[in-house]
C-alpha cells in the first residue's frame, strides 16, 4: 500500500511517499514562500522521481492541524482533490502527533511546539504506551503557561518543533535537566511521519476522513 502524505502546517512544505511502513521518498522545502506555489510541484516531482503515477497511490494523507491557517487549507484541499478525483481514501493526522512520532521510541514525554506568534505556541504532550498516549490535548497557549504545566510534572520532556530554539533558554530556566531538545536539524516538519501514522490508522483502525483542526488561538487576552 502506497501513501502520499503532505505537511504544510508550518513554514516548511513537505511531501512524502510511504509504502507499508517504509519511506520511499520525501521532499521538504523550508522556504518563506506560500505553500500553494510549491506543494503541488513538489508532489509531482517526487512522484516522477519515484516513477509513480498519482493513480498508483492508495491513500492520501495530510497534517490536519494545528498550524498555519492557510497552510492547512492548502494541504487538506490538495489531499481531498487527489482522493476525490481518484476515488481513494483521505485521512488527516495531527500535526503535533506527527512531530512527536520520531521521539516516541523513548520513554520520556514528548512536547512538540508550533509557533503561534505573540509568545504563544500550539502544543500537546505525548507518551509512548501500548498506544501513543496524549497526556495534554492539543491547545494553544502562552509559552509560559505551557512550560509551567510541564514543570509541575517533574519528568523528562523532549521538545521539538519550529519555535523550540526561540524559547530554549526559558524552557531550560524552568525545567533544568528535565528538558531535552531535538536537534535543530530535525525541528523542521516532515511529511514522513504523517504518512506512517496515516497508514497505520487506515490499516489497523479503519479510520479515514479529513477536516481541518485549527485549534483556535486567542488573538487577545493572552498574558
Amino acid at each position: 500500500m502506497k501513501t502520499l502524505a503532505l505537511d504544510t502546517a508550518t513554514a516548511a512544505a513537505s511531501v512524502a511517499v510511504v509504502e507499508d511502513g517504509k519511506m520511499l521518498g520525501v521532499m521538504t522545502l523550508n522556504l518563506k514562500k506560500p505553500h500553494s506555489q510549491k506543494i503541488m510541484v513538489a508532489a509531482q516531482k517526487l512522484l516522477e522521481q519515484l516513477e509513480l503515477k498519482v493513480s498508483d497511490i492508495d491513500l492520501f494523507a495530510a497534517a490536519h492541524g494545528p498550524g498555519s491557517f492557510t497552510g492547512l487549507r492548502v494541504g487538506i484541499a490538495a489531499v481531498k482533490g487527489f482522493a476525490d478525483s481518484l476515488n481513494k481514501p483521505a485521512i488527516g493526522v495531527s500535526t503535533l502527533e506527527a512531530m512527536a512520532y520520531p521521539y516516541l521510541m523513548y520513554k520520556d514525554l514528548v512536547c512538540p511546539l508550533i509557533d503561534a506568534r505573540r509568545d504563544q505556541a500550539y502544543y500537546a504532550v505525548y507518551k509512548k504506551g501500548t498506544q501513543t498516549e496524549e497526556i495534554f490535548k492539543a491547545d494553544c497557549q502562552n509559552i509560559k503557561n505551557i512550560i509551567c504545566q510541564l514543570a509541575v510534572l517533574n519528568k523528562k520532556v523532549i521538545f521539538t518543533g519550529d519555535c523550540v530554539y526561540t524559547h530554549k533558554d526559558y524552557i531550560v530556566s524552568q525545567l533544568g535537566e528535565n528538558a531535552v531538545f531535538a536537534d535543530e536539524l530535525y525541528c523542521v516538519n516532515s511529511a514522513v511521519a504523517v504518512g506512517y501514522i496515516a497508514e497505520k490508522r487506515y490499516l489497523y483502525k479503519k479510520e479515514s476522513g479529513i477536516s481541518p483542526d485549527y485549534v483556535l488561538k486567542a488573538y487577545t487576552g493572552n498574558d
Binding site: S68, F69, R117, Y214, L216, Y219
Partner: peptide
C-alpha cells in the same frame, strides 16, 4: 471580529518579510 482576521490569516502577513 477577530475570527474574520483569522480567516484571512492576518498573522501570516504581519509576521512576513
Amino acid at each position: 471580529n477577530e475570527n474574520d482576521l483569522m480567516s484571512i490569516d492576518f498573522d501570516s502577513y504581519i509576521f512576513s518579510d
